[in-house]
Simulated scan of single mutants.
Amino acid sequence: MHTGYHARIGKAAAIPINPSSPVLSFSPVVLPAPGRPVDLELRVTVPSTGDALPIILLSHGHGRSNSLSSLEGYAPLYEFWAAHGFAVLQPTHPSSAFLGLGAPEGQELFWQARAEDMVRILDNLDAVEAAVPGLKGRLDRTRVAVAGHSLGAWTTSMLLGASNTDPRDGSTWYKPEPRIKAGVVLAGIGNGGADISASGKNLIPFYGGDFSKMTTPALVVYGDEDAGPHLTIRDADWHADPYTLAGGQKDLFIVKGAKHGLGGISGWDAGETLDESPERLAAVQRMTWAYLKSQLYDGDKSWLEACKAVDAEIGRVESKSS
């Protein structure tokens, strides 16, 4: 019998989830943004029914695709999360190839503006609700999470409390967002300084990340085959740094055999995914959903049950409280 999920998700099917519902996706929602190069556009994806919807802010990466690094990408995540009860709000950041904007010196990849986009969305939830038919009054503003992939994972880390000291001039950025209660860091950027490769210093010259004050609860997800010499001199475990170097309650999901695409999270059948796997993708979908559900709802057992169910051939989980 057809379950609504890919026939090849394999052992990931054992990771429990709640019943799914049809979703509604609406874009673009346009928020006026004085001082930004262009107005802020976002996609809003929600379950077709239900109220008091918890919110996930989703930050896209900076991949080489023409469109996935925008509100047009990450359908495998936003569709799944929405089908299982979340409202997913995802902007097109100024760094998107879709916009073709050049970032000022010191703001390469619009790294600060990406975090500011998420704050702007939270500041304008009334306008978001008003713009989407049938959404008014359905968002639970007390339950907000953030998730991001690659460069979007750094955006996520900053909102969770990571700071950045630009190695060129010593200026520090530290602006945690207190309305965000939990996060998911997907294939994130690790420690800076001596761990950055020569090409990395050219690609992200602003980067001097410090995770020591990133105390908001977070799940860090990375693939054990995600080596990135274009950014770091270290192996795949560099992506675990937002877990190992951060304080507070943190969890880690290491996806076996995964590369930077984590099985295909950035888009269906996307050419930039070097490790496409319905099973791997399903595991990431289910584990991230379970983590956020348990973080946002006291007493929820979804994460505990997911950790017990995940097969060692798919990946393994670690956790720490300080």
Rank of each mutant, 00 (worst) to 15 (best):
D251P: 01
G193M: 00
M214C: 11
A312P: 05
W111Q: 04
D51I: 13
A147K: 00
V30E: 12
A113I: 01
L231K: 03
A7W: 11
N124C: 00
W289V: 01
A97N: 14
G248T: 14
G223W: 04
L219D: 02
Q90G: 14
A33T: 12
S212M: 06
P19T: 06
K136N: 05
P91L: 01
T273N: 13
Q249N: 13
D210C: 07
A309F: 06
S321A: 09
Q107P: 00
G192V: 13
A309T: 01
I314Y: 12
P34I: 14
A12N: 05
G73I: 10
Y297Q: 09
E279C: 13
V88T: 09
A82S: 15
K11F: 00
G35Q: 08
E305W: 02
R43M: 07
H60G: 10
W111K: 01
D140G: 08
I196K: 12
V23M: 06
M118W: 04
L186H: 01
K175L: 10
G161S: 13
M287Y: 00
S25R: 10
V185P: 04
R168Y: 13
A33Q: 07
I180Y: 04
I265P: 02
A13L: 06
A115P: 05
P176Q: 09
I180D: 03
D311R: 14
R286D: 06
A182N: 07
S25N: 09
T172G: 08
I254M: 13
P278W: 07
T49P: 00
P91N: 14
S302Q: 05
D235V: 05
T155F: 02
R280E: 08
R114F: 06
H84V: 12
A103Y: 07
D126S: 14
S197T: 15
A187Q: 03
G248F: 06
D166S: 11
S20F: 08
M287N: 02
A145T: 06
S59G: 10
V29R: 08
L125H: 13
A97D: 11
A13V: 10
P94W: 01
L101R: 05
A33M: 09
S163I: 11
R143D: 01
A131S: 15
P242Y: 14
G193Y: 01
P205Q: 10
P229R: 11
F211Y: 15
N164M: 08
L68Y: 03
K308V: 04
W238R: 12
K293A: 02
V221E: 03
L101M: 08
H84A: 08
E272G: 00
H60C: 06
K301R: 15
A182K: 12
P32D: 11
A309W: 04
Y207T: 06
D140Y: 09
A115K: 03
A130H: 07
I17W: 03
D140H: 10
K201G: 15
S199K: 10
W303V: 03
L203I: 14
G102Y: 01
E313K: 15
V144W: 02
L135G: 08
D210M: 04
A33K: 08
D269R: 13
T142Y: 00
F80I: 14
